[in-house]
Design a protein around this nucleic acid. Sequence first.
DNA 1: CGAAATGTTGACTATATTCAAGGCAAGTGG
DNA 2: CCACTTGCCTTGAATATAGTCAACATTTCG
Lengths: 230, 230
Amino acid sequence: MFAPIADAHRSMVEALRLPQQHKPAGTTLIAEGQDEAPLFTLFSGWAYRFKTLRDGRRQVLNFLLPGDFVGLQEKVADASLHGVEALTDVWLCPFRRDAVWQIHREAPELGYSITWLAAHEEALLDENLVSVGRRSAAERIATLLLVLYKRAAALLDPAPREGIVFPLTQQLIADAMGLSLAHTHRTLRLLERAGLHRIRDGRLQIVNPKALERLADVWDDGRPAIRPLV
Amino acid sequence: MFAPIADAHRSMVEALRLPQQHKPAGTTLIAEGQDEAPLFTLFSGWAYRFKTLRDGRRQVLNFLLPGDFVGLQEKVADASLHGVEALTDVWLCPFRRDAVWQIHREAPELGYSITWLAAHEEALLDENLVSVGRRSAAERIATLLLVLYKRAAALLDPAPREGIVFPLTQQLIADAMGLSLAHTHRTLRLLERAGLHRIRDGRLQIVNPKALERLADVWDDGRPAIRPLV
DNA sequence: CGAAATGTTGACTATATTCAAGGCAAGTGG
DNA sequence: CCACTTGCCTTGAATATAGTCAACATTTCG
């Protein structure tokens, strides 16, 4: 699923790369308002980006899966405008903070890949914004489950029998979809009782894809896109 | 406010640039689902990106002001995942469809600028997502007015006496903030009667910035960032 | 084993939506 | 010049979706 990387690029990236890091679930990878925030590619595990209002209300912006490039936004602001937290144990591939510029200068193809990844993440945000702004609670949750399922399945087994690993808590789903915890719970149960999906033991199974897709109404051309990796 | 451009880059960009285009207000600049969508910098006027669900519900993703680079997302998908429509008369600077790659290859600094612009637009989307997901109607509208005011003021007069040109209809505000038209109207009147702002004759004045900022709760370091222009 | 996090549920409330009118201003065609 | 249309703004009443609050159950984990 990832585009192959030329050897020349690989060695250049190696030069800008710092030692891989392992972080346990729950670690704050980037704090809200942090300056000198790190820059890294997520190599394994799940994470999420979020913002918090003064009174504690929190919005999850999007979920990060392996291959996602994190910390780009800090290049356009003095301090990080959002937080990033590890949802599961993760492995990171951190880069020097000037790596974005170095990569653009020395390997335009990789620079283009970074732009590609930024545009791709923006497309995810667009879809989230539609959910939160215009979909009902049931539609939002159907959309989230489907999109995450497809992203995760594309990374591993495209048709997993036992479902995918699914580390989200209901609170996180609520914060991502702009709903209250109670309503999120009720809606999840509604869909589950209706036989649309099943969440159990930290795994998500899509039981009735047709029904979920009807609710979600997301454009999807079927085949997962080939994506660059930095 | 825009970063200066080196002559070498300017001439390279000129080579990739197609003739400037003028479009009247209301023109569809990119249709939802369109393939071979154009790529351009907005030179003057306002526009907006949006998505529509099957049943017609519409979400405005963000508003586009002069200097914004449009069409990047189409590079990561076969067809445009969103529509773009001109809100006022606009001037566009269209590029050849392969310009993104050409720019990265031939002028890494400009390639970096494109990445910068993508990351910057993503930051705007993040803020919108927080509004739609976690702010009350009054907070959403206060946030939108403030953010648009600052963006528009930064482009022209930083302290406009008569307010800024403000071409949004209430329906558009509603679609941007995930509210119904009726509630948007009521909320706008509420804020206006409370003396927070004033919209009249297509212009927006910020009457009580303190109160609006208290409602909006947006991070703002004061000085508008210097941004690249492609 | 106890504490903390997560999941579950009900009763009540509130915010925002829907529906349905009507007004006003600008543009159009007879 | 005046009906007529069209788009946008305005408003009220009824309704619905989702939020709040308050328990309690269950699981996880040290």
